[in-house]
Write a protein that binds this DNA or RNA. Structure first.
Length: 106
DNA sequence: TCAATGACCTGCC
DNA sequence: GGGCAGGCCATTG
């Protein structure tokens, strides 16, 4: 299945602390492929089938673009709110506060 | 093998 | 400052 690229994304997502979120671009940039942000999102699709907290990954604007890929629709929002993250209209309010940069934290 | 798609990002008008 | 279009990488049909 050659999940080499995917495992890279997983390694970042699983290392996201509790109550923190990151963006596709940050993960892609950390992987050395800042222009491959779309591919990172693709890995997230496959990650939802595994034990990867992909709900902590959002786009640059802090919008839950992939919430509909979860079991339901409000599931992703519920998970984030459960970690203390404030969400309104499928958008993270304190996004700058809960933002977690892998290239800086790791 | 070729073509189309996708949980995106950056640049230009 | 806001909106539109193009591009990049990987997977799937």
């Amino acid at each position: 299945m050659k999940e080499n690229f995917f495992e890279r994304c997983y390694q970042i997502v699983v290392q996201i602390p509790y109550g923190r979120v990151t963006t596709y671009g940050s993960i892609a940039k950390y992987l050395g492929a800042a222009k491959s942000a779309r591919t990172v999102g693709y890995a997230m699709v496959a990650s939802h089938t595994k034990n990867i907290p992909s709900h902590r990954v959002v786009n640059r604007n802090g919008y839950l673009t992939g919430k509909h890929h979860f079991g339901g629709c409000n599931l992703m929002q519920q998970l984030l709110e459960n970690e203390g993250i404030i969400i309104a209209n499928d958008q993270i309010q304190n996004f700058e506060t809960v933002f977690w940069d892998p290239s800086k934290e790791i």
